[in-house]
Design a protein around this nucleic acid. Structure first.
Lengths: 137, 137
DNA sequence: TTCTCTGCAAACGCTTTGCACGGAT
DNA sequence: ATCCGTGCAAAGCGTTTGCAGAGAA
């Protein structure tokens, strides 16, 4: 995605632009690999050696509070971040560890209310063996 | 559940019985509140003052490896344990923090394969405001 | 100036690890 | 004698906090 579009997205979500914020958001948009805070830090540190981990954490928390990215809990001790806003399903491969996005329709994702409880967030994740790893067997 | 039934379950899952294992499993079966390791420790410590947290962690890991309980990731830094084996949906109330079990049918839970990926585990959790908290507003 | 972003270092909390004791087989 | 469950203490690791410096408005 181009710089201009990313800046527009930031404006839309009322995120004051800064160099680091821009770079972190850009990374999330261009690398839909559900990175951890550390993944982002490691990747960006190469080109921004002054970047600190604290800033990555601060920025991610800021993004989450603005609703521009969501936190993903799949494995213990692994908070992952996802820019994609539309509800979808995650599949984690037990073999290669890769996380796939699945956009299959799911009836659950459409309910605003279940058994009298008000639903605000939907999280679906599956674990198994991905297509690629099945091939390699 | 009665002691005899719990012992039968342990035997079925090939878990060698010990006093602590029995107590921890009994707690999980009789308190389907999706406790954390610490919840279990705190509760059992009252009647077993010699119990150590390490044993709770060891035992829970053992149970998971035997497939008798499953780990639940809903919030960050919160591994919860669930004895219930049949697939179901979890709902966490953002207000009171309680976790509800929902046994609504969901088509996703029946797929063995999606987009060529082999599925082995299904995790669905919702967040929102529960029935009780809605009442109190 | 004042507010916000940034970053170092220390603190924190949950979980794991190392190691040793003790009971069971 | 060996195996295995248990438990203390320390380490590990991801994340948060305190605080201070820098930069923008």
């Amino acid at each position: 995605m181009r710089e201009k579009q990313i800046r527009e997205i930031m404006e839309k979500f009322e995120i004051k632009p800064s160099f680091h914020r821009f770079k972190i958001l850009e990374y999330l948009i261009n690398n839909k690999t559900h990175p951890t805070a550390d993944d982002i830090y490691t990747a960006l540190f190469k080109e921004i050696p002054t970047l600190s981990k604290t800033t990555v954490y601060n920025t991610l928390k800021h993004f989450v509070s603005k609703g521009i990215v969501s936190e993903l809990m799949i494995e213990e001790n692994e908070v992952r971040y996802d820019f994609e806003v539309s509800p979808h399903i995650h599949l984690k491969c037990k073999k290669c560890g890769k996380i796939y996005d699945i956009y299959k329709e799911c009836e659950i994702l459409t309910h605003k209310k279940i058994d009298g409880h008000k639903i605000e967030e939907y999280h679906i994740y599956l674990k198994g063996i991905c297509k690629e790893c099945l091939k390699g067997r």
